Amino acid sequence: MIQVFDAGTKVWKSKGDELEVAKKDFIDILKKLEGAMGENNYFGGDKFGFVDIVLIGLSSWFGAYEKFGGFKIEDDCPKIAAWIKRCKERESVSKTLPNSEKVYEFVVMLREMHGIN
């Protein structure tokens, strides 16, 4: 899961050609995760499990990655997008998942701290 976060961090920290590489790397990781999930509803099959718990927490950062990267996860990884929606329908997730807009605002602050305009 650290690969997802690291690749996403490169998206919001990069510009120009580096950004294109970062976006491709991030999407490639999500595509691998889609392959691992297969036709299941969750990574553990039909039951929400450990991998789902860890990855859904990271998904609150995805909106910021999309905004700074100029892409939509749903376009390249529809299974991941559907999985995120399915997970957010769970009360345990909806009550605890950080607000994506707040995460975006935090990333804006991080970019400013790093001198990224």
Rank of each mutant, 00 (worst) to 15 (best):
K47A: 11
K47P: 13
F48K: 01
G49W: 11
F50A: 13
V51N: 08
V51L: 09
I53D: 06
I53K: 06
L55D: 04
I56S: 03
I56E: 00
I56W: 03
L58Y: 13
L58R: 05
S59A: 15
S59F: 09
S60N: 10
W61Y: 15
W61Q: 04
W61H: 14
F62H: 06
F62K: 01
F62Y: 09
G63D: 09
G63C: 07
A64Y: 08
A64D: 06
E66M: 05
K67W: 08
K67E: 11
F68M: 02
F68D: 01
F68S: 02
F68I: 04
G69I: 11
G69T: 07
G69H: 04
G69E: 04
G69N: 00
G69K: 01
F71L: 03
K72P: 03
I73R: 00
I73S: 00
I73C: 09
I73Y: 01
E74S: 15
E74F: 06
D75Q: 09
D75C: 05
D75W: 12
D76Q: 13
D76G: 08
D76E: 12
D76N: 10
C77W: 02
P78F: 09
P78R: 02
K79S: 07
K79Y: 15
K79R: 15
K79T: 03
I80P: 03
A81S: 12
A82F: 05
A82K: 07
W83T: 01
W83L: 01
I84V: 14
I84Y: 08
K85L: 15
K85M: 11
R86C: 00
R86M: 11
C87R: 04
K88P: 05
E89Q: 15
E89S: 12
R90W: 13
R90M: 13
E91Q: 09
E91V: 06
E91T: 11
E91C: 00
S92D: 11
S92H: 06
S94T: 13
S94K: 15
S94N: 07
K95G: 02
K95S: 08
K95I: 10
K95H: 07
K95T: 08
